[in-house]
Structures are given as C-alpha cells and as structure tokens.
Simulated scan of single mutants.
Amino acid sequence: MTTHPPQAAIVDLDGTMVDTIGDFAVALNRMLAELGLPATDRPTIERLVGKGSEHLIRSVLAHVGGRAQLYDAAWSAYQKHYLAINGEHAQLYPGVLEGLAALRAAGLRLVCLTNKPTGFARPLLERKGLAGYFEAVFGGDAFERQKPDPLPLLKACEALGTTPARTLVIGDSSNDAQAARAAGCRVVLVTYGYNHGEPVRNVPADGFVDSLADVPAWLASPA
C-alpha cells in the first residue's frame, strides 16, 4: 500500500516535547501539603500523567489516601500552584527545536494537541520557545473528549484542513497511538516519554524515534 507523505503533524506536549514531571511534582506536592496530605514522588507521577489534569489529581488523591470529596479543593489548589511555577521545573527534550524546525522546513503544518488544560499548555509553549512553531494549540478542555479518544485528532485535522491519512501524530504514549489508530493517522512515538510507566516499544505504532530531530529521517525512510 502506498503511503502518501504527511501534510501536517499533530504533536503531543508532556513527555514528547517537554519533560514536565518536575512541574507536576512541585505543584502536586504543594497541593497535597495545603490539604494536609502526604507527598508523592516522581515515579508515581510518571505512571499517572497523560490522561488530563482531572485524572491526575483524582489518582494522586487516591494514591496518598485522600478522600474523593477533596477533589474540588485539590483542583483549585493545583491550578494556583501549577500556574505559579508553569515551566520553571520543566526542560525541553534534546532535539525538539531542531525537529520542529525541520518539520516546518519540510512544509508540514503543525498543531500541538495535549490532554493538559489549554490554559496551562499555552504559557508553557511560550516559556519554552515553542509557540511559534504551531498554528494552533488544543488542550484537554478544547473538545468534549480527550485522547485516547480520536475526537481531538479529528478536530485538529479539521482545523488544519488536512485528512487523517495525510496527518502524522507524534507522541510518547499509548494514548497517542490509540487515538491515532482510531482516527486513521500514522503515529510515531518517542522512546523517552512517560507512557504510564510501561515500555513504549510495546505500544503498536508505525515507528519509534529517540528524538524529534529524527522524525524527518524516519519519514524519508521506506515504509
């Protein structure tokens, strides 16, 4: 089957472009301290991230023995603390800037699609010098459903004016791969992300790269 080259790419944020576990750890532990609950650690957070802030907070509360009824207070505290430090304890992964520049130079239109709330995603992209590469940014609150549901990917394709078959998804987890498969997009996963604590190479995907800078070469290789 002939694979047509992509016209656009939908790029995930946390675990794909930016290592944000440091931000999550600080904001979550400040939230927990405010609620009088014990702290959590980085390995636990790595397993829980990727399904949106609501899922993350509920999961962390359950992990430390907090009552589910604390969710509203926890969400309010988390927003306050996360916005105060957004990007301060996060780092770009190697090759991200080079990869995005190369994809743009190859003529691909780019959208950032993340389960992180849009109000958190936009400032982070700005702070890390990534915002200018993307025509649009869609967070987990942009549509009725989040990844791994295909709806956000289909909506992103609509926004770009491309078809799923001509749109590449770049992510780090089974969420991205499942959504891409259901939407009809090809998907390449980075090998360094979070993927809920599971080996990413076990995820059905079209390919794997060790850096975003490797994506153009992967696209140019025989299918």
Rank of each mutant, 00 (worst) to 15 (best):
Q91I: 15
T40H: 07
F208Q: 13
D41F: 03
A121S: 15
A183N: 02
W218A: 11
R109M: 07
W218G: 06
N175V: 02
H55V: 15
G193N: 03
G65T: 03
E126A: 12
V60N: 06
G197R: 03
L153C: 01
A33F: 08
L108Q: 03
A217M: 03
M17W: 09
M31F: 05
T3I: 14
N86D: 13
G15A: 04
N175A: 03
A131M: 12
V187C: 11
A8S: 13
G95F: 05
M17E: 09
P199Q: 09
A213F: 07
L35N: 08
S211F: 13
I57C: 11
G52V: 11
N115L: 00
K80N: 13
D141I: 11
E46L: 07
D41S: 12
G119M: 14
V187G: 01
Q79L: 15
L153T: 03
I170A: 05
S76T: 15
A182H: 05
D141R: 00
L130C: 08
L35Q: 14
D72K: 06
Q69E: 15
C157F: 01
R104Y: 10
A131C: 07
A156L: 11
S173W: 05
A179Y: 01
G65V: 14
L97F: 09
A102T: 05
K155V: 02
A223N: 14
A142I: 04
P117E: 14
E98F: 13
I85V: 15
F24M: 12
A183H: 02
L56R: 00
E158A: 04
L153F: 08
D41W: 09
D214R: 12
P5T: 10
L125F: 04
A62S: 09
A90F: 14
D149N: 15
D14F: 13
V169Q: 05
A62L: 03
R145F: 12
H63W: 08
V26A: 08
A77H: 14
D214Y: 09
A131N: 13
E54V: 10
L32D: 06
G22F: 14
P38S: 13
I57R: 05
A73K: 10
C157D: 01
K155F: 06
K116D: 06
S59K: 04
A180I: 00
L151D: 01
V200D: 05
G140K: 01
L160C: 07
P5W: 07
P150S: 07
A156W: 11
L61V: 06
Y192L: 08
R104L: 05
G66L: 09
C157W: 02
A68I: 07
K155P: 00
A62F: 11
G139V: 02
L189N: 03
E158Y: 00
T167L: 08
W218Y: 04
G119L: 15
V137R: 00
R109D: 06
V187S: 00
N202Q: 14
L48Q: 03
F120D: 08
L153D: 00
V203Q: 12
T44C: 06
N115G: 05
K155S: 06
P117H: 06
A77V: 02
G22S: 12
K128F: 11
R145H: 14
